[in-house]
């Protein structure tokens, strides 16, 4: 027996998500059909809104519903610190531990010749521009501790250091090859405390 058309279309959409194969898609699709109409309507609206109403912060590159994200518009933060991360989800992980009170810069990726990503393809130019205008004294690099992350961090430090700004690397405490996203909160805190100049 074939799936009715609306169901197979929904399954097809679910299968566009990472890690979802046909079996899981079928289970989710059947579940959606059994949900209350009101919940399904909300679900659909939220999906569209997440895409339509979000954009990247003009200053730091983080995801936000405004032009400027909530971190960048928070005047109580320490203007002398910028923490550079790969992805918006790293900002959220870092904010959860409430230990860091400076600003962020989200690259949106790392340098990778294999992926064809150069400095212009990630938010490197906007970072360098920020450093010219702002009263930043320290940049903390928090790329993942894999080969691409290391190379990107070293690259940034070579560009930033000549301007007389202190550059530290968040690496200790994160296991080698690990993603920041998966690091637990204790290791993240240790990592912040143990940052080193490179």
């Amino acid at each position: 027996m074939y799936y009715p058309e609306p169901l197979s279309k929904l399954m097809d959409s679910f299968m566009k998500l990472p890690g979802i194969g046909e079996k899981t898609a079928a289970r989710l699709a059947f579940y959606v059909v059994s949900m209350r109409e009101e919940d399904v309507t909300h679900f659909a609206r939220h999906l569209i809104s997440a895409k339509r109403d979000l954009n990247y912060c003009k200053i730091c590159g983080n995801l936000t519903a405004q032009e400027i994200c909530s971190v960048c518009s928070d005047t109580s933060r320490d203007r002398s610190l910028i923490l550079v991360v790969e992805h918006p989800k790293d900002v959220i992980a870092m904010e959860k531990i409430q230990e860091y009170h400076g600003f962020y810069h989200v690259l949106g990726g790392v340098l990778s010749p294999v992926e064809g990503t150069g400095p212009e393809d990630i938010n490197v130019p906007s970072l360098l521009k920020r450093l010219q205008n702002e009263e930043v004294t320290e940049v903390i690099l928090a790329m993942n501790a894999n080969v691409e992350g290391e190379a990107t961090a070293t690259y940034l430090s070579r560009l930033i250091k000549p301007a007389g700004i202190k550059v530290t690397r968040l690496a200790h405490g994160l296991s080698v090859g690990s993603d920041i996203e998966y690091a637990n909160e204790v290791t993240l805190m240790k990592a912040i405390e143990g940052r080193t100049e490179i």
């Binding site: 340098l111 010749p113 150069g118 400095p119 080969v147 290391e150 190379a151 070293t154 690259y155 070579r158 560009l159």
Partner: peptide, 14 residues
């Protein structure tokens, strides 16, 4: 397609 030798230097060091 690329011109930046700084990045090459870094990969070479690693």
């Amino acid at each position: 397609k690329a011109h930046d030798t700084l990045y090459l230097d870094i990969l070479t060091e690693q």
